[in-house]
Design a binder for these strands. Sequence first.
DNA 1: GTCTATTTTGTTGTAAAGTTACATATAAAA
DNA 2: TTTTATATGTAACTTTACAACAAAATAGAC
Lengths: 284, 284
Amino acid sequence: MASHDLIDRIRSRLEELNRSERKVADVILQDPAAATGMSIATLAQAASVSEPTVNRFCRNFEAKGYPDFKIKLAQSLAGGTPYVSRSVERDDDAAGYGDKIFGATIAALDDARRALDAKRIERAVDYLIQAKQIHFFGLGASGPVAQDAQHKFFRFNLPVMAYEDVLMQRMVAASCHTGDVVVIISYTGRTRELVEIARLARDNGAIVLGITAPGSPLAAECTETLEVITPEDTDVYMPMTSRMIHLALIDVLATGVTLRRGEDFLTHLKKIKDSLQATRFPAS
Amino acid sequence: MASHDLIDRIRSRLEELNRSERKVADVILQDPAAATGMSIATLAQAASVSEPTVNRFCRNFEAKGYPDFKIKLAQSLAGGTPYVSRSVERDDDAAGYGDKIFGATIAALDDARRALDAKRIERAVDYLIQAKQIHFFGLGASGPVAQDAQHKFFRFNLPVMAYEDVLMQRMVAASCHTGDVVVIISYTGRTRELVEIARLARDNGAIVLGITAPGSPLAAECTETLEVITPEDTDVYMPMTSRMIHLALIDVLATGVTLRRGEDFLTHLKKIKDSLQATRFPAS
DNA sequence: GTCTATTTTGTTGTAAAGTTACATATAAAA
DNA sequence: TTTTATATGTAACTTTACAACAAAATAGAC
């Protein structure tokens, strides 16, 4: 949909450019943001080429002229999702794969942000507010996510637990009551055990919230789901970005609960924060 | 650094503008995209004002001049400079705080990406490659991060553990040998215990990698540190974004190690992934 | 109300930026 | 080599943006 990233287009066409235009491209790619602030003369000088060359370069990229090109560049810098997830190559150096991994993570979060469904969040917060007890379930890589959630919700002064193994999860699900909320975090939503556990918990009167893939078997068993679009996991070197989205979603839920709890609860939060100060070295 | 949505700023300041500048604002707001394509003369005419008026208008909005203003406008147009961390307000709805939290997280990751130090990563990977054993230490909110790291490095066929409590960490540190690598994850780098543990581990011949704040007491005790700029934690509603950065950094390290291990190791990774298939429902 | 002070807006001229047309250099083909 | 095509630069030209000043308009004082 959105205008394809101009910067990427320049990068991909680097090879087919003349020697001089290549120089121009290099200067622009080296710091696109800076380029948006340069005059055609400045840029020409920085690339050691003449001004018309810069102008021709701009026309090569579907711009009416230099100012128009700068506008397009500025747009692609801001919104055109500069964080295209490029895959890590075998011969990348640290700068390369570091940049790509952060880029992919950011891109994934950005996508998730766009897909955010306010109504579902609102409803999930509703359930959490009313909970007498909260259980976070996650297996494998989602285990730490569940733990993180526990840390977050711990502050709300109610029993919160995180379980990372199927046995415990099943036991907890089996002993659920009305008033319990079970939050199941699963990347695929296709893990057999978890689907059964969700059903079990719900049969026992618990509210089951799923942070999982839309349309998955797990999603079908949940009272409410926060859907996370699962990107293709084809790339060998690329780490799972989905758990980042899960974490952010949990932040959102925790914030939602905090906001609902209102003013007086803030002082309580502050107190917890302050209590940690004692264990720390004073800031230099 | 970056200014947030220029269009919003114009809209909010509509009232306090002069009659002529107001006219300029109206024309711009009526079709901002078109405005980015206009010359100062065209825009002046469209607003029935003089060119200097337009120019003064631009300066009112922290632009150097008209062209600069157009650049800023173009940026804000292409998605409103999406990644600026705005703070959550008491009366935000789910759409509001959801968006802000994701935005803040993305902004933090983006900052961290810029601050990435390839040489440090390279060195950290060097140490990890040579490790006979790896221990990840994290307290509180960093506990789950350590766990996540364990999951990641587990695949490398070497003993990896994660410890979340000071006692175990101290015991492990005390029994370290040459060949052990201890990775300490700490948001502030000012937790007394962790600083002592780092020293202890190092005294026993272990390599200590710190994922922590630059210039902190902990950083001083480490063999090598991956520095994470700690953003101000003043905001009550805003969750800690730093652990996201920590996670991404660990992804980077794990990827670095994978790349170094080379081709033959990839098949091993693939095998692990496939072994999980059996536990899942087939994709619909 | 008039008169002054202040702010707002427009006019003119100029410097800078961008563009065009053309000339020269460079490389490829004959 | 010469000839062609392509790439790049030079210089003239056009447009654009801006500064400095002048004219309105507005507000306040008398």
